[in-house]
Structures are given as structure tokens and as C-alpha cells.
Nucleic acid binder design. Structure first.
Lengths: 219, 219, 219, 219
DNA sequence: GATGAATGAGCTTTCATTCAT
DNA sequence: TATGAATGAAAGCTCATTCAT
């Protein structure tokens, strides 16, 4: 039986300096733990472990638990800007085509980034972190709802859509998207059979557009 | 020695705090605090204060914080049975009429009872209380979704609705209802102008039905 | 060997309610630990142990370590008022008689109360707790020094004492008293033979008075 | 490759930080921080910053915080030897002249060297570092007190001074000096008007000598 | 039963110390 | 040698739970 200490080769160093990467790694780890357990139930220990550092390290990069939480939400919201830059909507398309495109683009972004983890967190912590909720409302919800409402209104004005309250319609169109995201990170694990998210999204847009249109596609 | 509260005419006090109401009062208080702050961030002190008892009293009726939480969720889910008993759907109506009725009935129930406070709680605590989530899924979500899916399927079979995946359609119809509830107990306080919930619900059913119908109402 | 649990008689209760006495007991314990170790080196655990309670109990009566410290210093300073009430100086006596009396009275008070533990604490924590130091200065040092200076001045005016700066003289008269106290609670344990405090005080007053007088007692 | 720091004219840099000065610089910085905050409340980070090095560097020269502290006190005590070498007392002078000289010499040394910072530190940390306190007692306090007591005794023997306990008298003569030093590094910042230290010292020696003398200077 | 003082386990945070760079 | 990121033991503090009153 060989003596452990005699092993010739590479002793893995006890730790490594990762000054530049750490904050991001910690925030990523923290986001997932906060998402799963909620802010209060999350122990810094869990985050540290997931980020493969020790508790103390967290305090090198963030002043405290709250600061870590806020930073990570802010960081998440910040990703929206990047998304906006790369997403352009066809200008002359009909309203239903724009909606189709928007929903799919948005979903692609929401479904595949940390950004999509925010809704569940925001909803859970809304009253405990009012300032964050307000920021999310102002920077994410309201602009998104506005964009959707504008397209709906455009459709109404063009005679393509029925006359409805455009803002309410926008909320209703967006609700299933958010619900799907929130569900994904909470109860969906308890579904008997997994949700086919894309089918859900497709069915949703079709029904929505169909519901809005004055003369539906089916003749 | 006469009871101070005794009204002039009768010897029966009009209102008396029955010993057996204590647990109910505590659960009501607890529900609201858990709803606002989440399970972990809620201090029993807060609940006690809201229920106008002291911390110690909570432990007379519930073995611990977790038991109080579980009890209150179970109690909430239990209300569903009472609701089911009193709600009957017209048997011969057309699918869209049934949907219209169901959504309004459900919303009336959800919007005005403690039952409607559960979704936000379940979503926030889903992973921390898997057994509760499972119970909610089995007793509430799946049956409700099934009922809705059955009506949709009935509409499809009758040629009233387009051919869609009835279960997905059911989810989509229910999503805005739950979203509205969840929103009400989290971020809605941060809306610029308050949501008119009934307009939202009405617009939603109309669009949904319109979206499903083979030949929409507007000719 | 008897089973512990079978012991018939008085099981000492795990704890007892002492709402009214606790704060004082805790402050007394804390004063001694702070005096011995200094503020920063004192662990709440030590205080709790000395006060025969657990750490948690400290937080029932004081919001945090700092609050406990401040409270206890304030409490200590407060004792001065009680002392002042009971100490009267003879009005017509000669200056040297008043000094004699004052020093002895003061020393009796300083040497036998918690009040006398403050100087060492104040000096050690002066820069860490500037507000406390200021309070001690304004409420204790300056008034005390003023009283002594007034007597010295009276002696000078009456031709009994040499002409010196009365305030400086007051400081010098008080210095050995404070030094003795500070020493008592710090290095005196390391003296080869213990200090005879009363001899020290007596010698000091005699020398001081003798030093001040225009014509000394020895003919 | 030429040294960047090399001055134009000479190859010898005008000023170079000698390797051997590091420990001294660190101890100087540490002394001041320990003096201000006390041992436990001092963070090595603060010392490092004041010494213009980083935390890690401290551990190159000192094995740990305690070692740094002990070293610096020992170093301070060591200065006493140098002082003793250069201070000679006139052998044939009268006792009161020697006292006058001694006090002034000692004060000059205490007031202007790091040595004078020790008393406050020793008093504050006496019980936490008994060995240091003992060392200070044996090497500083007792010899100093002995010297003073010897002079007083000499005065008594010569009939110049009253008969008092020489050791106690020595303590009393020294007390205001130490008190002044301790005060300077603690509460003196909170005095309404700054203390004129030399006036204080002068008044003190005069009063002390006057107090001791059988026949005072003022006839 | 009801109360709330007291407990103690557990979490956040600090900081002396180590060690990869 | 010097640095400072990373560690981890220890301290302050919170709060669910117990239990004397």
C-alpha cells in the first residue's frame, strides 16, 4: 500500500488564483441555488460549494449575502441589453407575423439564458426586495409588455385584429411564456410526463394569433 | 356573572371566539405571512403577532414551523372539495360555453379565497417541500387541467374547435389565470396602474375561445 | 448505581426567569470581562458564562455587543450622580482640609464601586469609542477636575497655598488616584508585593497638601 | 540592465530602502496601530497598510500577529538600555536637585520616543499578555521606581526630606508622568483645551519636592 | 392553556494565516 | 522576496423550540 505522501507526480494545488473568473462563477452558482431554494433558505455554504470555493471567498467579491443576490439579479437584467441589440423585427411584416417572430425570439432567449431564471426569483422575493422588483418591472416587464402591446395595436389599427385592449392582450400573450418559465424552475419536476416546451409555445402563439384575428386562418 | 359581550336581547353572545378557531386563525395569519415573505424568511414571531397570540401558543397547536406550514397548505387544498361540490357544469352546453363558465367560476373561487394564495406559495417553495408540491400537483393542477382538457377535446370532437393537443391547450388557457394570481401576490404592487382583473379574465376567455374555434364568432 | 432519572427529589430547573435581575447581572459580568480583556478580545461567550446564562440571552437584553458595552459604561457613569447626592463638603473648612476630605471620599467611592473600573476601560477603548470617551470626559473628568481646581484656587486666594495654576494642580492631585485604579486592574497583579492602597492615598494627600502650602505643617 | 532607480550622477542610489529596515518599519507602524486600537481590534491589514507593505509581507518577518506584538514591545523596552547609558546623575547634588533632573530627563525620553507609547499598551493588554507585563514590570517599572526611591531615601537620610515610605513616594512621583503619557495616547484628544505638558511636569516636580522637603523653599 | 424568557443549533461574517503566483 | 487570493477557524447574531411561570 503506497504512502500517499510519496506519490511523485502532481499534487493538485489546494487552490488556484482566479481573480477574474471568480465573481462570475460565484454568481452563476448563487443564481442556481437562490432559484432552487429561495433567498432566505439559501446557505452561503451551499453557494460556495457549488462554486467550488469556500465561504470566505464569497466575501472577497461581495460584501454580503444581500450584495451577492442583488449583483446577480442586476447582472441578469443587464443581459437584456445584449439581447435587444441583436434582435430586430421585420418592419413591414403583418402584425401576426411580428408576434410569431417576437414570441419565438423571446422564448429562445428566455429559455436558454440565466435571464430566464429571474422571473421565478423575482416573484418569490418580490416583497422582500422591493427595489429589485421595481427595477425588474421598469427594465424588463414594462418595456416588453409595451413592445407587444404596440404590435397588437398596430394589428388592430390595420384591421387585422379585433378591437381589444392592447395592453391586456399583451399581458395575456406573455403570461404563458412566463408561466412556463416559472413552472420549469419550480413544479415541473413533479409533472407525470415532461412538458414539451416548444409544442407549448407553438400552440400558444397560434391560438393567440388566431384568437386575435378578425378572420382566422382556417377558412 | 354575565358575559360583557352579551347583547341586550339574547343570552347567547352574538360572537364568541371558539377554542377550536385558534388553529384556523393561526393558519390564516400564517398563510399571509408565508405568502408575503416565503417560508424561510418568515419568523414565527411575525405569525404570532398577526394572529394576536404569542410564539409559545403556536406550539400548542402545531408541532413546529414546518407542521404549521404543511397544515395550512393542506387546509387550503382541502377547500377545493367544497368548491367542487357546489359547482356543476351544464351538461349539454357547447364547449365554448362550458369554457366560458368554467373560467369564470374558477376565477371567482381562486380570486376570493385563500385557495388562490397557494400558487405563489407552491411555486416559491416547490423544491423545498417536494411532498407538498406533489400533493398540489395531484390534487389541484392535474385534475383541473384534466377537466379543461376534456372540454377542449369535446369541442374538437364536436368539430367546434380546431384540432390541437387538448392538454397543451388546457395549460395555455389556465396559465394566465395562475399568472394573474401569482402576480397579484408578488409584483403587482409595483405596477404603474393597477390591473383590472376582470377585464383581464374576460379578454382572456374571449381570445382563447376565439382562438380555438373553427369558425369564430365574428363572421 | 442509581439511575439518574429515578432520583426522586429536586431536579434543578434548567433555567429560571429573572427578567428584572438579568440585565444588571449581565452588565456586571460584562464589565469585569471587558475590564480584564478589553472590548475586542472579549467573547460574548465569556460574558454569558460569567453571568451564568447562554449567549442567546444576552441578545434578549442588549441589541448587540456594542450596545452592551455602551450600556454598561453609561450605567457606570450614572452611579456618579448617586455619589454626588450623598457627598457634601464642609463649607467653612480650610482648603487643605477640604482636599483631604475630598480625596478620601472620592477614593472610597472609586475603590469600592464599579465606577472605579471605568478609567482603565475608558483609556483602553478611548479611540475606539470616541463618543463614550467624550461622555466620560464631560460627565466625570472635567467636573471632578473643576471641583478640585476650585478648592485649590480657594486656597491660593486665601493665602493658604502657593500661587500655581489651579487646574494643573488639580490634575496632578488626581493623577495618582486614577493611576492607582488603572494599575489595580492591569499590572498590579505582577507587583512583587501588593500595594497598600490606603498608605499610598494617605501619603499622596499629605505630600500634595504639604507641597501646596505656603508654610508647611512641619515647623 | 540598469536599475531604473539609479540617479543620474552616481551609481549609488541616493536613497535605498535597506532590507534590514523592513522589520523596524513594520514594528513602528504596528506600534502606532496597536497603541490606537489595542491588540485585538488591530487588523494586520491596517498595520500592513501603514507600513506600506502587504499582509503577506508581515509573515515573512514575524511568525504571527502575537510575535509581531511581542517583538515590538521587547524592542521598545530595549531602548531603555540606550537611554540609561547616556544619562548620568550628578553624584554630589542634593536629593531635590537629583529628582528635578531625573524627572526632566525621564520625561524628555518618555515624551519623545516610542518607549513612551508602551505604558498605555501595557496597561491595556496587561492581562492578555502576562509575560510581557512581567517583563515590563521587571525591566522598567521596578528599576525606575527603585532609582527614584533611592533618591528619596537619600533625601530622608540627609534630613532634607520628611520621613515617608520612600517606595510609595517614588510611585506617587512617577504616577503623574505615566498618567500624562497614558492620557496623551487615549483621552487627551477629547480635552477642551490641549494640555501643556511641560507646565504640567514642572508644576508636578515643584509640588512634589516642596511636599517632601522638611523646610520648603518659600521661607 | 397561554406566555415569553431562556436555550442552543446554525448561519453570516471576519480576519489571521497560508500559499500559488 | 513580495503579493494578495483563498482558506477555515472562530466570533457575532438569529430564531425555532422549550419550559418555568
Amino acid at each position: 500500500m503506497p504512502d500517499k505522501k510519496t506519490e511523485t507526480a502532481s499534487h493538485e494545488p489546494r487552490w488556484r488564483r482566479r481573480k477574474d473568473d471568480r465573481p462570475g462563477e460565484i454568481m452563476d452558482a448563487a443564481l442556481d441555488v437562490f432559484l432552487e431554494k429561495g433567498y432566505a433558505a439559501t446557505r452561503l455554504e451551499d453557494i460556495a460549494q457549488k462554486a467550488k470555493v469556500t465561504k470566505g471567498t464569497l466575501f472577497i467579491y461581495f460584501t454580503n449575502k444581500e450584495d451577492l443576490f442583488r449583483s446577480l439579479v442586476r447582472e441578469g437584467i443587464g443581459q437584456l441589453a445584449a439581447f435587444k441589440d441583436q434582435s430586430h423585427t421585420d418592419l413591414r411584416a403583418s402584425a401576426h407575423e411580428i408576434i410569431l417572430l417576437m414570441v419565438h425570439n423571446w422564448w429562445k432567449f428566455l429559455a436558454n439564458s440565466n435571464f430566464g431564471k429571474l422571473p421565478k426569483i423575482i416573484i418569490s422575493e418580490a416583497t422582500n426586495f422591493p427595489d429589485i422588483t421595481k427595477m425588474y418591472m421598469d427594465d424588463v416587464i414594462l418595456p416588453g409588455r409595451k413592445m407587444m402591446a404596440d404590435v397588437v395595436q398596430k394589428g388592430i389599427d390595420a384591421g387585422e385584429f379585433q378591437s381589444v385592449d392592447a395592453e391586456i392582450a399583451a399581458r395575456i400573450i406573455l403570461a404563458p411564456l412566463f408561466m412556463l418559465l416559472i413552472w420549469r424552475y419550480s413544479a415541473s419536476a413533479f409533472e407525470k410526463k415532461p412538458i414539451h416546451e416548444l409544442d407549448y409555445i407553438n400552440t400558444h402563439v397560434n391560438l393567440s394569433i388566431n384568437g386575435l384575428q378578425v378572420r382566422p386562418a382556417t377558412p
